[in-house]
Design a protein around this nucleic acid. Structure first.
Length: 336
DNA sequence: CACACGTCCTGGTAGC
DNA sequence: TGCTACCAGGACGTGT
């Protein structure tokens, strides 16, 4: 499942392989892949063609490529927005040897690298040189389940910009992302404010961690891992968390995502930009997620799976004691 | 057939 | 009562 570390790995791969290239053509194989582009697939393709990809930006699980070189004067500067949903992948291939994946939803044809104004960040050894040979590339959007999507969008000023910002490149973002909170790896995230906001919520802790308008990037997997590391149960009422507990679970989430990023980020060295979160390398390090029946790495107690919000939660009943009385965060209608 | 789950949407509730 | 903000839960979609 692509959560923040997987999306960041994709963003980094795109930054190294497709920036500076111009979109020469667009194919949409399934209209629903661009359903959030309201004007439809033809308009999607038209607005993309002729534009140059100048930057790869991410907030939480949303990722977008900034577009330069509007073909028509009426076309505003904007971005190609992508969300990978549950199974989306963005794959870069040399045009010559690009096959057709069975779940290929859309394909961008990219012309050879051109010079763009401003520095195109090329990091990683040799990555830029190999691709800068002028050969044509394709950027494929592959998505087995169909929760992911692409759209060409405008940009609005970042609503939560901080005057003393520490250097986050997020000065503008797609309207569809404007309501998404900063993530735990964002240098401009206001940590004390986040702790306060979390404790102000009147809900369960895991629900809050998954709420992208509170803090973004955390999905079901990393929520469970963070809760386990922090020794907190996901049903703990947020308004009863002590400040140190709130801080601890957020720190744990940041730590587990950084570790995943380190592993995932070193797994893709070549042109192939992959994201297949659950089959990645990090799943070997998962302590509880998907580990029902197996011993807790800390105390040996079998991990238990419980249903939660139409999905699963994995916990160690010893390391993560249930809140007493399981008083579901005072929502008015108690739990029975 | 249940299950995987991120996001959007709807309807409900609390509190002013 | 009206308004706003917030919250819970269902729908969506495809393949195993």
């Amino acid at each position: 499942m692509p959560e923040l570390p997987e999306v960041e790995t994709v963003r980094d791969g795109l930054a190294r392989h497709v920036l500076g290239r111009e979109v020469a053509g667009v194919e949409v194989f399934r209209a629903s892949a661009v359903r959030r582009h309201e004007a439809g697939p033809a308009d999607f393709a038209a607005r993309l063609t002729g534009r140059t990809l100048t930057s790869a930006v991410r907030r939480g699980k949303f990722l977008w490529l900034l577009l330069d070189g509007a073909p028509g004067a009426d076309a505003p500067d904007g971005a190609l927005l992508a969300h990978l949903g549950m199974s989306g992948q963005l794959l870069v291939h040399h045009a010559a040897d690009a096959g057709r994946h069975p779940h290929l939803r859309a394909r961008l044809h990219l012309e050879g690298q051109v010079e763009v104004q401003g520095p195109v960040q090329v990091q990683g050894q040799g990555a830029g040189g190999r691709d800068g040979d002028g050969g044509e590339l394709v950027l494929d959007f592959v998505d087995q389940r169909t929760f992911g999507h692409l759209a060409v969008t405008g940009l609005v000023p970042t609503p939560d910009a901080r005057p003393g910002g520490l250097g986050s490149p997020l000065t503008a973002l797609p309207p569809a992302v404007a309501h998404i909170a900063r993530d735990l790896l964002d240098p401009d995230l206001d940590h004390p404010a986040l702790v306060a906001a979390l404790r102000r919520r009147r809900t369960e802790l895991k629900r809050a961690l998954l709420d992208q308008t509170l803090v973004s990037g955390i999905g079901n997997i990393y929520a469970d891992e963070a809760l386990w590391r922090a020794g907190l149960h996901g049903t703990r009422p947020t308004d009863r968390l002590r400040p140190v507990e709130a801080q601890r679970v957020l720190d744990a989430a940041a730590a587990v995502m950084r570790e995943a990023l380190r592993v995932g980020g070193t797994s893709f060295d070549a042109l192939y930009v992959d994201v297949n979160g659950s089959s990645g390398y990090f799943d070997r390090s998962l302590a509880v997620y998907g580990q029902a029946g197996r011993p807790c790495p800390r105390c040996g107690t079998p991990v238990v799976r419980t249903a939660f919000m139409n999905r699963s939660s994995f916990t160690c009943s010893r390391c993560q004691p249930r809140p007493r009385a399981a008083r579901r965060a005072a929502t008015g209608r108690g739990t029975a």
